[in-house]
Design a protein around this nucleic acid. Structure first.
Lengths: 286, 286
DNA sequence: GGTCCATTAAATCCTCATACTATATTGTCC
DNA sequence: GGACAATATAGTATGAGGATTTAATGGACC
């Protein structure tokens, strides 16, 4: 079998190498583009990390489709300009998140979409990186509405004094941030995380990563057209009151209102972004 | 520098090798012990897969504690009796699930527990493998009560004809299974998965893996003292009715009842197992 | 004399290249 | 049609450097 016909495997042939060699993006980039200091599970510095990011983005972006078989390791690693070792470690990372699966002789193939672990912080981040579309926003808030009101309820029942104090502090910090979006994000996230943690349920705690992604995304959107976060302050206060006064139902309801408001904000920002400008998204904040 | 003082790093020194060489466990074991054909993301055949399983179990089992630094790669791979390649790939796999983190000079250390992704099927499986204790059961059902009734509600609103048909089929298969636990498990899982999928929300779909683990566990427990699943048949029927007759509230309520019943069953089985016999758990089904 | 900063040093992971092995698919022969 | 051989591919092993982060050292300045 003469393989002259170039069997048309994805990612075979010449592709721009991942990052030809000595990359200077590391430092500079991380500073200017807001460190998503979140719960990423791989290093952006390491080569296999960058390969994983590259492949992961391409899978979530739909450029690599479920069922597709990647080019053989030799070929693919050559195409990416990295060693087989680096590529294989990247593949292991992605396989661990349910995105792909390797077998001898058969090769490495993209697993069907229903096996992808969208609850993994990285997978979700790649998902939003690819397409922050309405559907994803809807999905995200559907899940949050299932979790967070119930979590607030539980917190109102059983949050310890320390947790309540943390909650109060987070609220004060949000208040102090005023309209400065930069300063707002962190305590906002801390507020929601504290509630999630206060459930004392590790499974639910792990969903905190989802919330983080949600907030990061909504913040990035509202950066372009600042609707201002201040109007959500009283909503947060209501949640806080419900919890510290031990009124589960009040806390639950307040959280629900808060989420609906938040979703509307995101939708509005998304609409503006879509209709108005198609500014290069990756550019900056002018 | 005489390293005679044996710095007491975990996993240094002599340990039983992972599985010295040619292992014949693969085939035989997989057949007898019910293939958890679930959503595992690694191969049990491969060496790095076994190493990952070994380390993962030890982390979730508490034998390796957060903050601990593993022995250097050379040392650890020697101790485990595998090559550095295999070890490194295992580490990448575990790192992708939030369990550990590697840095030059510092070494590889177990991440704090709150970073562990308990929503990952493998992590959850290792968790239950280690200690199917009451607390984990409580956590699991708390989460299910947040998700599944809401999912049933959504399904009642928007499930397509195909989904309803699948649901009916699953129900019929459960009915046909009667008291045969072996035959019951699969359609039961299918029933719940179908509902989860019918939400049309990929994030929620990913939670299906959690359900799977829950059912697998409860099945394994109820295997020893068969309470019989038949009594849950009418409960499933109620859910099915709610969905196919497009009554969201009914479906939601029915699912809630179903879950409470299921949790009680598991708790009962757990209590019996705990008090009565300490039979070797890994043994069989005598 | 103490504090801070730059430079050096060392430990560990990271990447590479290469060779060999194991496994599963495919094709072939009877 | 079934057993068996050929083959492509991922899996494992090994050795050698390179890169990076932490720690230590030394000097300058107050």
């Amino acid at each position: 079998m003469d393989h002259n016909g170039e069997p048309k495997r994805p990612l075979s042939g010449t592709r721009p190498p991942i990052q030809p060699r000595n990359f200077q993006e590391g430092r500079a980039d991380q500073r200017s583009a807001r460190p998503p200091r979140g719960s990423r599970t791989y290093s952006r510095r390491s080569l296999h990390g960058r390969v994983a990011h590259d492949l992961g983005s391409r899978i979530l972006g739909g450029k690599l489709k479920p069922g597709q078989v990647l080019a053989p390791e030799d070929e693919l690693s050559a195409a990416l300009g990295v060693s087989r070792t680096a590529l294989r470690e990247a593949i292991k990372l992605l396989a661990a998140k349910g995105l792909m699966e390797s077998r001898p002789r058969t090769g490495t193939r993209i697993r069907p979409r229903e096996h992808w672990n969208f609850l993994d912080p990285d997978v979700l981040a790649w998902h939003f990186e690819a397409e922050p579309v309405e559907r994803s926003v809807r999905d995200l808030f559907q899940l949050r509405r299932m979790i967070e009101p119930a979590a607030a309820d539980m917190a109102a029942q059983q949050a310890g004094a320390a947790a309540v104090a943390r909650l109060q502090q987070a609220f004060r910090d949000m208040d102090a941030a005023g309209d400065d979006g930069e300063k707002w994000e962190e305590p906002d996230l801390r507020f929601h995380q504290t509630i999630i943690q206060a459930t004392g349920n590790e499974l639910i705690s792990s969903l905190g990563a989802i919330i983080e992604t949600a907030l990061t995304m909504s913040f990035r959107l509202s950066n372009d057209n600042p609707t201002g976060q201040r109007h959500s302050l009283p909503l947060h206060r209501a949640v806080l009151n419900g919890i510290q006064s031990r009124k589960p139902q009040k806390a639950r309801q307040a959280m629900l209102v808060l989420l609906e408001q938040a979703e509307q904000d995101v939708r509005r920002a998304l609409a503006v972004r879509r209709s108005g400008t198609q500014r290069p998204a990756a550019g900056g904040r002018n």
